[in-house]
Design a protein around this nucleic acid. Structure first.
Length: 465
RNA sequence: GUGGUUGUAGCUCAGUUGGUUAGAGCACCAGAUUGUGAUUCUGGGGGUCGUGGGUUCGAGACCCAUCUUCCACCCCA
């Protein structure tokens, strides 16, 4: 073996103990919220058949899938002609498995494979890592966790309303107060395209206007013209950027603009229904205000995402006043299982991006102190006799629910004390010949330096208070 | 996938137009202090300068390749 420097693949990360504790705190909040709304956990394999994944995310997506080389002689099924036909052809010959790219497609596969055992509507959540062969950037990794909740087998817009509720509850519990849940509808987007005389071109229009806050109105105009959208159509489109007023107000304005298009009407009715549900649920998303004075839930006709598969409502969540992209997104897809030969099943779901939520909580210093707690008390030993004396005490402390540890060898006091100091252990108990003789333990407060002689019962009472 | 950017001790970084033996702060280890951490003092270990080639009498510095970091596109959590 050469002594090479070890490293980890590009875009992947190790998580140290302090980070894992904080991440688990986020996972816990998300998991409890999902379960409170009746979603149950599902886990699927890290790898799927490559054929299950390809073609589900578009051409761009296919390139970002991590393929797994066949085991053994992966060239056994190939010949020289295969290489000449290019990498796409060759890939199918040397790779049959791939790492999962998201949690939605494996979920759809699971639903199709288990359709006879599942009771619909089927609500599941899934918290697992996914892999993308993307080029890493801030907040973008090649291995990251997604936290999905989806329900399939119902068209009810109550699901959409509950998604808003779950987003609001999760982020509120995490201590966030200033965030915006953007909502839009594919029907509205299609209706807009039709109303401005570019029916059927909504994908191109949406890709451009989704960048509005990034490249500005002029940038969008330029891009639309490049994509062949008529200037007269763009003139009709631009007033929509500036729609203002309450959400109800915007809905009314949209009604007059695209109410006579079939798709637009479908979208507006859906959105209206979602608002009705949220009102009856007395949703905080409608009543709570951000620092800017706007409600948390905002209808945004420039929101366009997941165009390749979403068909109904679409969501995106942005934390305000932090430099971070969306931390959550989702929408309704009418035909997800259709790609696996099971048509007519509608689903709706969304996902939290834990890595980004972590960065936001860190930036806003919203992690609670409890995520920093470790060992409460360290027992310091001097020799074999004090170790033997300490062991039953150690067990009694643990039985009392106090996180405690005994330094595992009779190292120098300085060494043991430094250990407590560096692990931020707030208390140390010294057990030497004096303490054994008197039966009184020496409890040292590492913050103040105060020491006092106490019985074990007094120590337990103090640490549990 | 396209275009940039970064890499020197565990960490943050110096290092002059290419010139002797590559430095600092923090961290680490040991001692001052054989029953007391964080503070103080003294001493010490640790680098094939990301990796591999090349130019040169001479490369941490210049050139090429490759890996990595970060950024802008594309796209996306």
């Amino acid at each position: 073996m050469s002594k090479e420097k070890p490293s980890i693949p590009k875009g992947t990360r190790d998580f140290g103990p302090a980070v894992v504790v904080k991440r688990n705190y986020i996972f816990g909040v998300i998991r409890r919220t999902f379960e409170k709304f009746g979603y149950l956990p599902l886990e699927t394999p890290a790898m799927e058949q490559l054929s299950v994944l390809t073609g589900k995310y578009g051409d761009e997506g296919d390139q970002l899938i991590f393929k797994i080389l066949n085991s053994g002689d992966f060239l056994s099924k190939t010949n020289a002609a295969d290489i000449e036909q290019g990498h796409k052809h060759l890939t199918r010959k040397i790779s049959e498995k791939a790492l999962r790219y998201d949690l939605t497609v494996p979920f759809a596969r699971f639903v199709v494979m288990n359709r006879n055992e599942i009771t619909f509507p089927f609500k599941r959540y899934q918290i697992q890592p996914v892999w993308r062969a993307d080029r890493p950037q801030k907040g973008r990794y090649r291995e990251f966790y997604q936290c999905d909740a989806d329900v399939v087998g119902t068209d009810s817009l109550l699901c959409e309303a509950e998604i808003v509720q779950m987003i609001n509850e999760t982020l509120t519990t995490l201590g966030l107060t200033d965030f915006t849940i953007k909502i839009n509808h594919r029907g509205v987007l299609a209706g807009i395209a039709e109303a401005i005389g570019e029916k059927g071109r909504e994908s191109e229009i949406c890709v451009a206007i989704d960048k509005l806050d990034k490249i500005g109105q002029e940038g969008v105009r330029k891009e639309l013209l490049e994509r062949g959208i008529a200037a007269t159509a763009i003139d009709k489109l631009e007033p929509l950027y500036a729609l203002s007023g309450s959400n109800e107000n915007i809905l009314e304005q949209l009604q007059t603009i695209l109410g006579n298009t079939e798709e637009g009407q479908r979208g507006l009715q859906d959105l209206h229904q979602v608002w009705q549900y949220l009102k009856s649920l007395k949703s905080q998303a409608l009543t709570a205000q951000n620092e800017s004075g706007n409600p948390r839930l905002q209808l945004d006709v420039t929101l366009a995402r997941g165009l390749s598969y979403y068909t109904g409502c679409i969501f995106e969540v942005k934390v305000n006043n932090v430099s971070m992209g969306s931390i959550s997104g989702g929408g309704r897809y009418d035909n997800l299982t259709g790609m696996f030969g099971m048509p007519g099943v509608s689903g709706v779901g969304f996902s939290f991006g834990v890595d980004r939520i972590y960065d936001v909580l860190e930036e806003l210093q919203l992690f609670p102190d409890s995520t920093q707690l470790g060992t409460q008390v360290l027992l310091v030993q001097f020799d074999k006799e004090s170790e033997l004396y300490a062991l039953p005490l150690l067990q009694q402390l643990r039985d009392a629910g106090i996180a405690s540890e005994l330094y595992p060898e009779a190292a120098k006091l300085k060494k043991q004390m430094s250990y407590a100091d560096q692990k931020n252990i707030p208390y140390v108990i010294l057990i030497g010949s004096e303490e054994i003789a008197t039966g009184k333990l020496k409890l040292r407060n590492m913050q103040t330096g105060e020491q006092q002689d106490s019985t074990l019962e007094e120590v337990i009472a103090k640490l549990n208070s």
